[in-house]
Amino acid sequence: MLRLGIIGCGKVTTMFHLKSIKDVEAVTVTAVADLDRARMEGVRRKAGAERGYTDPKELLADPDVEAVAINTPPRFHEGLVLEAIEAGKHVLCEKPLAQTIEGCRRIGDAQRGAELVVLPVHNYAFTPCLMTAQELIEKGEIGALQGIDIRFDNNLWSYGPKTDFRTKETYGIVEDILPHALSVVQALSDPVSEAKEAEGWRKKYPVLDNFRLAMATGSGVTVRGEMNWTSLIPGFTVKAKGEEGAIHIDLMKAPYGVTVKTDRGRKQIGGMGFGQYLDLIRLKHPAFVGQYEHLVATVGGTEEPRFTVEDEIRMMGVLEEVVKILSEDEKREQT
């Protein structure tokens, strides 16, 4: 049994993490921490944790805690991950691990030799339909992969975050959403190595809340994406295009189903039963369950990390490239 401590008791913890942890028998929440006592106590009760702290340092000093889930706003990630490593705890941290390449490298340096697992949360990479699509591509179902089209629709208002860090930064949407796309591309093909184009605009918020971009992986697969915070209905659709056909998935609304279209015809693989529909309505997404099962397996030594600190450094480099392109584009428009 992996004894988990949770740092950060906001919306991502209550909406996603706690619901998924209940379905992973090998994980028990031992302690929680949040600067806000009321939030901390609420999550402590929901999780059935024995102890709650208003200082994360106290949780990290708790000898009964083996691993920590860091679910705070991003500006706290690097410091908390480094403190957790120093305290001898395995780490599962919401993306990004740090807000700079240098910060990610500091985490990598600290992890090296510590014999501790440090995993960034890239939950959509554990969605059943994505793993099915990955298997089909590897088997050559659609021929050689040539391109990936991604659309990520989110409704930030309906999500109702407890903190406003996303809309404090001009390009906060890039840090918030783009890692989801990068992790999915890496799972289907290979890591994105270059950002080629980017265009952003404001629709509802005082900061950028929509953007589109073009990227390429190291092997030359073309990636095009459009992402936003302003859609009425959320969705995360991916189209993988090969020489002989295409694979379509929606990781958010249809996490078990895959549609394959080739010259040989159209076929549907997988689907959802009534119980799985109910789980989605209750915001119990299978990807978070898979993320925690992976944490247990990596700590136990039966699986290698699907995403490493080195992967996070590479992704941070792409994020910085995209922000640079968007910033330069805005400057040109203002002159």
Rank of each mutant, 00 (worst) to 15 (best):
Y53M: 04
T72Q: 01
K57G: 06
T72H: 04
A47L: 08
A67S: 14
N71C: 03
R51A: 13
V43P: 08
T54F: 10
L59K: 07
V68G: 08
V43M: 03
I70Y: 13
E50L: 15
E58V: 06
A67K: 13
D55I: 02
E41F: 08
V65D: 02
E66L: 08
E66Y: 11
G48Y: 07
P74Y: 07
T72K: 02
G52L: 01
N71M: 02
A67P: 14
E50K: 14
R75V: 13
R44F: 11
D62I: 05
P56H: 11
N71I: 02
R75A: 12
P63G: 06
D55M: 03
R44E: 01
T72L: 03
D62S: 09
A49N: 05
G42S: 14
A61P: 12
R44P: 04
T54E: 12
A49S: 12
E41L: 15
D64C: 07
L59I: 08
R45Y: 08
T54G: 00
K46C: 00
I70H: 11
E50T: 11
P74W: 07
A47P: 00
D55S: 07
R44S: 11
G42R: 10
Y53H: 09
A61L: 13
D62R: 10
A61Q: 15
R75C: 00
L60M: 10
A47V: 10
E58M: 05
E41K: 12
P56W: 04
R75K: 10
K46T: 09
N71Y: 02
T54S: 13
N71W: 01
V68N: 12
E50H: 15
D55C: 08
A47H: 03
N71E: 05
D55Q: 07
V43L: 15
N71A: 03
E41V: 14
G52C: 07
D62W: 00
T72E: 01
A67F: 13
